[in-house]
Write a protein that binds this DNA or RNA. Structure first.
Lengths: 151, 151
DNA sequence: GGTGGGGCGTCCCATCATGGGAAGGTCAAG
DNA sequence: CTTGACCTTCCCATGATGGGACGCCCCACC
């Protein structure tokens, strides 16, 4: 089967097929004399596995691990579970972040009249912390300590 | 103040300051004779506004709109509210997506023994929809090399 | 045996916001 | 004048994906 057919059969785009191959997620496909990639049903199954894993939001790195575990009949389910659990934890963290943003912004939006008047609690919140035109913001010593990153 | 001081005072990195300038989010900064960018307290306030807006997960495009609304004393709060509401809707949609992923994967992980045995509901779910392939998922072990993953 | 349309190949670019780093100029303190 | 911190611009990388250009290939149709 051609790349287009494998793509249609698996639900993974041909573009992604080439990309997955280039990153080593799937093995290098056989080629016809003309250089066309050739796939079989087993490849399509792997691709479906990958697509399904992507639907869980798993990263390529984790999917790579899962695929090799999947193809290893001796795998300990512990390994699989660990990967899934890590991902769930990350999803939960992300959800918590987004929920905090969402709740805060929604509260602000609820408090906003939303009419032709310029007064707006959203903007008032956003500009909070902006120093009014008082004295200098930076102290003479301030520029020294640049503590690492801020994620 | 120069870019490093403005960065420290605003919480926006110098790198991002240049980037925001290049994309037109903030106006082109004045320069010293040597070419150094110069900022004042008003710039720092704008930067803080931007940083705060970023904390709500707003896109640069929406922040650009918000900044111009913020600086327009005649703005209708309706405009601001609309932007916030759109973003809240997108956040909710994203949260729903992530929550669905999270719940589904978590259920699978919960059902997984997580021991040394190879049987695993997570992998079984992932391979669901894969066409049966003559009783085997991958071709006979001896013929195909496993592309020496080793890691 | 031609030919045309569509599939395939590679390579480059863009996303979105951010950081890393190199090469070279500038400033301020010693 | 030296030194070191800071500034400049430019390039690259992220993560997964799509878009597009250009050129070759394949097959059906005549």
């Amino acid at each position: 089967m051609n790349i287009g057919q494998a793509a249609a059969a698996s639900g993974v785009s041909a573009k992604m097929l080439r990309y997955y191959e280039s990153t080593g997620l799937i093995p290098t496909a056989e080629r016809t004399d003309a250089g066309y990639r050739v796939y079989d049903r087993a490849d399509v199954n792997t691709l479906r596995f990958i697509r399904r894993a992507r639907e869980f939001g798993l990263s390529m790195a984790r999917i790579k691990l899962l695929v090799s575990l999947w193809q290893d009949r001796e795998r300990p389910s512990r390994e699989v579970k660990r990967i899934a659990t890590e991902h769930v934890a990350e999803l939960r963290a992300r959800i918590a972040e987004l929920t905090a943003m969402c709740d805060a912004l929604d509260a602000l939006a609820e408090a906003c009249h939303g009419d032709q008047r310029p007064d707006c609690p959203i903007l008032r919140d956003l500009e909070a912390g902006a120093e009014p035109d008082r004295s200098r913001i930076i102290s003479p010593v301030a520029s020294r300590s640049r503590t690492g990153t801020a994620g």
